[in-house]
Amino acid sequence: MVQLLFKRIGFMIFTMIVVSIILFLLLETGLTGDPATRVLGNFASDEQKESWRDQHGYNQPVVIRYAKWLGNFATGNLGTSIRYKGPVKDVLLPRLWNTAILGFWTFAIMIPLSLILGVLSGMKEGSLLDRTISVFGILTTSVPEFASAVFFSALFVFGLKWLPGTSSMAGGFEFKQLILPAMVLVVYDFGYVARMTRASMAEVMQSQYVRSAVLKGLPYRQVIIRHALRNALIAPFTVIMLQINWLLSGVIVVEFFFAYKGFGALLLEASLNNDIALLEACAMVAVVVAVGSQTIADIGYTFLNPRIRFT
C-alpha cells in the first residue's frame, strides 16, 4: 500500500516535470514569440525590452532559467500576470475557489441523479424504464455544452424570464446565478455516468451471487441494497473521479458563456491575451488536478474492491 502511494506520487511528480518543461519551452524561450514584447507591448522601445530582459533574467542560459522558474513555482511564487497587473496567486486562487463551488454543486446534483437513474435502469435491463433513461441519457450527453447553454438561456432567460442570464456574481454570491451553468454541466455529464452505472449494475445483476441471493428467497429490495449495489458502485467511482478532470475543461465553455468568473474563463483569457505567467500557472493547476484525481481514484479503488490489493 505504502509502496503504491510512493509509486503514484513519484509518477505524479514526473508527469508534472515533463509538462513544466514543455510549458517552459513553449512560453518562455521565444519559440512562439518574444516574451519581452508580450509583457511590455508593441510600443516598447528596444532599450525598454532589453532592460526588462536583464531585470527578469531572460539573458541567462535556458537551463538556469528553467531551474529558477521551477524553484519559484515549487515555492509558490507563480509570477506576475500581465493582464491583471498583479501576482498570479491573487488572481488564480479566488478563481479556483469559484470553480470549486460550481463543481461542488454540479457533482452534488449529478452524482446522486446519475447513480439513482443508472441503478434503476440497470436493475431490469431492457425494461421500459431502462430504455427511457438510456435514450434520455444518450440524448443529453450528445448535446455539447455550448449548444445546451444557448438552449437553456433561450428558455429560462429570454423565454420564461426565470433566471439571470449571466453569472458574474458582480453583486456578491447569488445562488440563482449558479443554476444555469450547473444545469448545463449536469445535463451534459449525468447521462454518461448513468450509463456507466447502468452497465456495471446490469453486470452485477447477472452475477451468480445475485442469482443465489434471489433464489434463496431474499426480498428483492435486500438483494439490491445488500449484494448488488456495493459491487455495482465500484466502477462508477472511477468514472466519477475522472469527471473532475473533465470538469476543468468543461467549465471553459460554460464559464465563458455565462461570464462566470472561474478557472476556465481565466485559462481562456490567459491564453487569448498571451499572459505567460498566468497561463503557466493554470496549466500546472490542471495537471495537478488531473494527476491528483487519478491517484485518488486508484487508491480509493483498492479500498472499495478488496479483490484488488497491492502488497
Partner: peptide
C-alpha cells in the same frame, strides 16, 4: 465584466 461573448451581454 461579462467576458468577451457578445451573447452574455445581451443575456445580462
Amino acid at each position: 465584466d461579462l467576458g468577451s461573448d457578445a451573447g452574455a451581454y445581451l443575456a445580462a
